[in-house]
Design a binder for these strands. Structure first.
Lengths: 171, 171
DNA sequence: GGTGAAATTCTGGGCCC
DNA sequence: GGGCCCAGAATTTCACC
């Protein structure tokens, strides 16, 4: 279930997404409130679970993480709950696996992986394929990253005019 | 090229990744330095481009972003630079496209997309397929997200002992 | 939501190793 | 070069209205 967010909340979230260390005062000036009032809203948003955490982005190359890959994992048709558990726990504990999504379609999972080198990726894939839950993996190594916003919110999509809008979408 | 990072730098980066709003003083206590010393290092890391930005993560569901999908984009075999430009610019300007990677293998691009509803996703895919650069798209909608750390660094990979290390890797 | 104030933090300068 | 101490400025985080 979504939570009620007014325009001021959205602006606060947008600013926090762009600069996680912005001060309450600066935020207040941007949204037309005082520092403490903004602070009260932030506390509420944290309490409600809208804000999950504050974090910092690094340049992967500068810290020796040179490889990004996406792995499509096909699982065996017959598997036990324990085997699925084992797979998901492996994913959770492996820091080089950044993301893991259960998807429909021909594959069962999509993984986003970051490693320092192709060798490290190879080793990780070897471990993955050793899991009884895993039947097959298809790996796509990124040659270039065009965009990686990391933004959880696509924020207010302001342009609604030019694009062909779909009528009757009372979501 | 990677940048020289000592253990203290790595600990600072790790802490900043876990909590982007941690104070310099608290950071100093964690790594055995004073606040100002930590601050000097952070300034250096920012200047060197290791630290890219501070940001905030939200619960996608709580802000009405209910759909996550990965789209594999196959491009036409013959295309002009202008057509490729057009595609990449579309990707850059579309906030609902969170990531776009140029990959090898059978596909040409992998996109990570977040939308509020399947209808919005459908509309976005329609626009994608209208681009002359795009030949085919294969979409996998995530039924569940097992892990989405967003962490750029898998940080200290502490376990080096048990795993079969590959000798002769003089990278 | 605002105001005012105390506790904490940021951030720069100067100094030492 | 890197770190420490110190101090003024800014911020966070409380009161209470």
């Amino acid at each position: 279930m979504s939570i009620e967010l007014d325009d001021i909340d959205l602006k606060i979230l947008q600013s926090l997404q762009e600069d996680g260390r912005i001060s309450h005062a600066a935020l207040g000036k941007a949204v037309g409130l005082t520092g403490p009032s903004v602070y009260a809203r932030i506390l509420r948003l944290e309490r409600e679970g809208v804000i999950k955490r504050y974090t910092t982005f690094f340049d992967p190359d500068k810290i020796g993480q040179h490889v990004v890959a996406f792995v499509r994992v096909t699982t065996r048709t017959a598997f036990s709950d324990a085997e699925q558990e084992g797979f998901e726990q492996f994913v959770m504990k492996e820091p080089q696996i950044l993301e893991c999504h259960d998807v429909d379609g021909e594959d069962s999972y999509i993984l986003k992986i970051r490693t320092s080198s192709p060798q490290t990726l190879r080793q990780l894939l070897k471990e993955l394929r050793m899991l009884p839950f895993v039947a097959r993996t298809v790996t796509s190594i990124a040659l270039a990253t065009i965009k990686e916003s990391g933004l959880t919110i696509p924020l207010p999509s302001p342009i609604e005019g030019p694009g062909p809008t779909e009528p009757g979408n009372t979501t």
